[in-house]
Simulated scan of single mutants.
Amino acid sequence: MRLEPRPEGGFTIDATDLGPLLGIDPPLVPGLLRDGRIQSRFERGEGEDEGRFRLTFLYRGVRLRLILDGEGTVLSRSRVMAASAR
Rank of each mutant, 00 (worst) to 15 (best):
E8F: 04
G9I: 13
G10L: 12
G10S: 00
G10I: 12
F11V: 04
T12C: 14
D14Y: 08
A15K: 08
T16V: 11
D17K: 12
D17P: 06
D17Y: 10
G19I: 10
P20I: 10
L21Y: 03
L22E: 01
L22W: 02
G23A: 07
P26V: 05
P27E: 01
L28S: 08
L28C: 06
V29N: 15
P30C: 06
G31H: 08
G31Q: 08
G31N: 02
G31W: 07
L33N: 06
D35Y: 04
D35K: 03
G36A: 07
R37E: 02
R41G: 15
R41L: 09
G45A: 09
G45I: 08
G45C: 04
E46L: 03
G47Q: 11
G47R: 12
G47Y: 11
D49E: 11
E50Q: 07
E50N: 07
E50A: 06
R52I: 14
F53S: 14
F53I: 08
F53T: 03
R54H: 10
R54G: 10
R54Y: 11
L55P: 09
L55N: 03
F57L: 13
L58Q: 07
L58D: 09
L58W: 00
R60T: 03
G61R: 01
V62R: 01
R63C: 11
R65Q: 09
R65I: 14
I67N: 09
I67D: 12
L68Q: 00
D69P: 07
G70P: 02
G70Q: 08
G70Y: 05
G72P: 09
T73C: 14
T73D: 09
V74W: 06
L75N: 05
S76D: 13
S78H: 02
R79M: 00
V80F: 03
V80P: 11
M81S: 10
A82Y: 05
A83H: 02
A83W: 06
